[in-house]
């Protein structure tokens, strides 16, 4: 019914008939500089604070950029690269660590939030040179392929057992679904957890 009108204002028409500049180009410089001034005001400037954190039972005294996530602290600042960055947005679980014994996403945790808490990463799971039973179970059940999501899977798996979410295959699968594996080694991951579960 309104074909004529909608044709007139199609995107194609708009682009062809407009002077073909993006909106940004139309914004006067005064408005732009106002925008940046506002942004400057509201964005916290780079700031370093002294912190003392405990990771894998080791105390670190650090001067930390307040913007640094726990994930980037581990990977970029103190050389614990076992914790992985898959998405940096809490969508994949690759960065899972234990904070005070519970599974948490280190990409959604600022370093400034962790003093006074005990952090355990994949590097801290093996004790006295002996692999954690979950690590052994992942090897035995081939619970990985490329290995990139594996540290997060194992940290989650250990917590999953501690939480008591291992009643059935379905329950394990449900409670391990925050940890994505694109290789989809889900058979092995699930079997490994069943092996360790009480």
């Amino acid at each position: 019914m309104k074909t004529e009108a909608s044709n007139t204002y199609s995107r194609r028409f708009f682009i062809k008939s407009s002077s073909a500049f993006t909106t940004l180009a139309f914004i006067p410089n005064s408005v732009k500089s106002f925008f940046y001034q506002v942004k400057e005001k509201f964005f916290v400037k780079k700031q370093k604070i002294p912190l003392s954190v405990s990771i894998n039972n080791k105390e670190y005294r650090l001067d930390v950029d307040t913007r640094t996530t726990l994930l980037d602290l581990l990977r970029e600042n103190i050389g614990l690269t076992g914790t992985k960055k898959g998405c940096d947005h809490g969508q994949c679980g690759a960065c899972t660590v234990h904070i005070d014994g519970e599974r948490r996403l280190s990409c959604l945790t600022l370093t400034a939030m962790i003093p006074g808490k005990e952090i355990t990463t994949i590097e801290g799971l093996a004790k006295d040179g002996k692999l954690h039973p979950m690590q052994e179970a992942f090897i035995e059940n081939d619970g990985f392929q490329c290995g990139y999501c594996t540290p997060g899977q194992i940290m989650s798996a250990v917590a999953c057992v501690q939480e008591g979410h291992t009643g059935s295959t379905e329950e394990i699968k449900e409670f391990m679904s925050g940890n994505l594996c694109r290789c989809a080694a889900y058979n092995g991951i699930t079997r490994a957890i069943q092996k360790v579960a009480p």
């Binding site: 990977r75 614990l80 690269t81 076992g82 914790t83 992985k84 960055k85 990463t121 994949i122 590097e123 799971l125 093996a126 692999l131 690590q135 992942f138 090897i139 035995e140 081939d142 990985f144 290995g147 990139y148 594996t150 540290p151 194992i154």
Partner: peptide, 20 residues
């Protein structure tokens, strides 16, 4: 064969990927 040659590196976080 049981268990991959690089298995221990992968489950302990010692395996180094490009950015690491």
């Amino acid at each position: 064969a049981r268990g991959r040659v690089e298995a221990e590196e992968k489950v302990t976080g010692k395996a180094k990927y490009s950015a690491e």
